[in-house]
């Protein structure tokens, strides 16, 4: 059962986030349990505007659960979650939808709709979220999104006709088409060759620079981390075990933390 603590501290935090608009996501004592498995124990995290925050950790430490809780795919058990200054536990369904419109999510598998062409995949979020959009405007937005990810000539292809790297890029184009303020990447380079991984990492960096987006990136790819991370958080047993820049982590006194970077 969902239990959110709404107290004077959380109201203070909401006020602070509204005043300091550089904080886009704030998590306070976030807890999530699946049966006997305590995936997130006591997560406290702040993400600033325009920042690329990389989350590292062993498989099964709750990294994906962490970002899925931000878009509401996973319901948290306890704690407070503030997005763009608003405590999501206090929002009604319509207000939640408005918040979700500002968040883009790139799934590990890209999650392209198999029954739709590339064009229809990109048009889908526009049709669902932007009411009464003109066909010409939709066309130009689709073309712009494809151009941004270097897939301009794939507009009439089916997802099954694309390579793994192209699918990831298309997933990113679909995420970018609504110009979200926050982008959540779930292992964007997993399963790709080193060259394509580098291309995707550069693309993430370009998106950050071009649209001033704030991103949380879940990854195991240290090359990608080095390239894109402004700040790194390492999760261990459901808590934040370490936090800092790439060089801080690389030179950490903790052997376990250092082992990620060897």
């Amino acid at each position: 059962m969902r239990r959110m603590t709404i107290n004077a501290t959380s109201l203070k935090a909401e006020k602070e986030d509204t005043q300091n608009d550089h904080i886009v996501v704030r998590m306070e004592h976030l807890t999530k349990t699946f049966g006997d498995n305590h995936v997130l124990r006591d997560i406290n995290l702040v993400m600033n505007k325009g920042e690329n925050l990389v989350v590292l950790g062993k498989s099964g430490t709750g990294k994906s659960v962490l970002i899925k809780s931000i878009v509401g795919l996973v319901e948290i058990d306890e704690g407070n979650l503030f997005i763009l200054g608003q405590n999501i536990s206090q929002l009604n369904e319509n207000e939640l939808i408005e918040i979700r419109k500002k968040i883009g999510f790139l799934f590990q598998s890209a999650a392209l709709y198999d029954s739709m062409t590339v064009r229809e995949n990109l048009e889908f979020p526009l049709r669902r979220q932007v009411h009464k959009i003109a066909k010409e405007e939709m066309n130009s937005l689709v073309k712009e999104a494809l151009l941004n990810v270097g897939l301009a000539n794939t507009i009439d292809l089916w997802p099954s006709e694309l390579s793994g790297g192209m699918r990831k890029r298309l997933g990113l184009a679909r995420t970018l088409i609504l110009k979200p303020e926050i982008i959540l990447y779930d292992e964007p380079t997993t399963g790709l060759d080193p060259i394509t991984s580098k291309e995707i990492s550069h693309l993430i960096l370009d998106v950050q620079k071009k649209y001033n987006t704030s991103s949380i990136i879940i990854t195991h790819d240290i090359g990608c981390t080095k390239l894109i991370a402004n700040r790194i958080i390492v999760l261990k047993d459901g808590i934040c075990a370490a936090e800092g820049s790439y060089s801080d982590m690389e030179n950490s006194s903790d052997k376990w933390i250092r082992s990620f970077f060897e």
């Binding site: 899925k68 878009v71 509401g72 795919l73 939808i97 979700r100 419109k101 968040i103 883009g104 999510f105 799934f107 590990q108 598998s109 999650a111 392209l112 709709y113 198999d114 029954s115 889908f124 979020p125 669902r128 979220q129």
Partner: peptide, 20 residues
């Protein structure tokens, strides 16, 4: 089969994220 495969490949989650 169609819905199960959409579930496996996170297409249903993607739809939810698209406010659908």
């Amino acid at each position: 089969a169609e819905l199960a495969s959409m579930n496996v490949t996170e297409q249903i989650d993607a739809m939810q994220v698209s406010c659908t």
